[in-house]
Design a protein around this nucleic acid. Structure first.
Lengths: 132, 132
DNA sequence: ACTACTTAGTTGTATCCTCGAACCATCGTG
DNA sequence: CACGATGGTTCGAGGATACAACTAAGTAGT
């Protein structure tokens, strides 16, 4: 399992060789914001298992790239809601595409009769680890 | 898959809550040296997908902890062979134990009738990604 | 209302890990 | 013996993260 992680190259913050070089944290953030628009920074921190200070900086960075909009909540001005901008949406799409390209290469290397098993197993594993 | 990585908490360099706090790089290095004693630093760099400079420091760090011995090769004095010391072996054992404890918790959470599938799938996945 | 507690986010400081480039030592070859 | 290749080390820089101190905004108890 350790070896798997290493083989996948989760070391350097370049990770996805897409249009723009994106750190792993940014990619995950984009993914989560896309999945749940209007998410607060704290919520994102919880999802990513990161400190709120880290998220604050990360959000600022994404805002700086023009990928994310930070808007104060009307009801409760403490909250900052995160949304993808138009450019953010396309950026996320690009990243997702290059990611699936990468995984497709791996997937293709798996014997055809095992592919289903692997996918099933991973989703089981994900389910289990999600709430640990 | 991304989510899986995140769920496993591969973020902060504490990782394995064993006796001594060990960075993820150190843990992997220990694992590889244990697997193949007498490995050179360059060899380790290749295994871990890290720069030789990084390995140099890492090796120095492990040597500083008294876990690794660095010996010049007799035949070719350019090589430095890496070996675990006695303490290094026990340290590696501790880390491995805490790691499997962690994975056992995950494993236990997997429905019993799926466990075998998951293990099989992971080994297939590892095989495939190893040489990518 | 007033005060105290909680919550969301920001900023500052420190640490850790990594890379790239410049450098040294050693080996092999013509 | 000079030259290029190979293994390691050192130096400087950058990125990501945590923790702690701080501000701002809401909430609850009195």
């Amino acid at each position: 399992m350790l070896q798997l992680v290493r083989s996948l190259g989760l070391h350097k913050p370049d990770e996805t060789p897409c249009g723009q070089p994106v750190s792993i944290g940014e990619a995950h953030a984009l993914l989560e914001i896309a999945r749940e628009p209007g998410m607060t920074q704290n919520g994102l921190a919880a999802r990513l298992h990161l400190e709120k200070s880290t998220i604050s900086r990360l959000a600022g960075l994404l805002e700086g790239r023009g990928w994310v909009r930070r808007v104060r909540d009307d009801r409760d001005a403490r909250f900052i809601r995160l949304q993808l901008t138009r450019r953010g949406v396309t950026a996320h799409a690009n990243i997702a595409a290059s990611r699936s390209a990468k995984f497709n290469r791996i997937f293709d290397a798996i014997p055809a009769d095992r592919r289903n098993d692997v996918v099933q197993a991973l989703s089981v594993l994900l389910e289990v680890t999600r709430d640990t």
